[in-house]
């Protein structure tokens, strides 16, 4: 099989895939399912994926730079780096949320105690 042919076919699929993913992302943002704040990194990664899919030359030089003989494999590298970045991003968000939830819970417990003692004093 002609490798050039294979590449362009993968190229077609990855362009299609990126467009669908970006469309999906925009859809979720518009439906208020996803906060813009948390969609930025997704958008950046999908866009990079799209650009790389369209400009095969970039992918080829990038894969040569990495020493990868098969350009589409370089695409996977980009994808995996992107996924790792997203996961890290989520861990940061989760840590932040956990800290906030803990603070909120403590505040709540303190308020509850204050109400209890006020009620006791009132009765």
């Amino acid at each position: 099989m002609n490798p050039q042919y294979l590449l362009s076919r993968i190229q077609l699929f990855s362009i299609l895939g990126s467009v669908v993913l970006i469309a999906l992302l925009v859809y979720f943002i518009r439906r208020r399912k996803l906060l813009e704040e948390y969609s930025i990194l997704w958008l950046i990664i999908f866009s990079i994926f799209l650009v790389v899919s369209i400009f095969g030359a970039f992918l080829e030089s990038f894969s040569r730079f990495l020493g990868v003989l098969y350009p589409p494999a370089a695409l996977f590298v980009i994808m995996i780096i992107g996924i790792f970045l997203l996961m890290l991003h989520f861990s940061i968000i989760i840590s932040d949320l956990k800290r906030k939830i803990n603070r909120l819970s403590i505040t709540n417990a303190l308020l509850e105690e204050r109400i209890k003692s006020l009620e006791k004093r009132g009765s």
Partner: peptide, 15 residues
């Protein structure tokens, strides 16, 4: 104080 979920020793002490 009654914590709404089990926060662990650190959370309890912080409270």
């Amino acid at each position: 104080l009654t914590l709404p979920f089990n926060m662990g020793i650190g959370g309890a002490v912080l409270a």
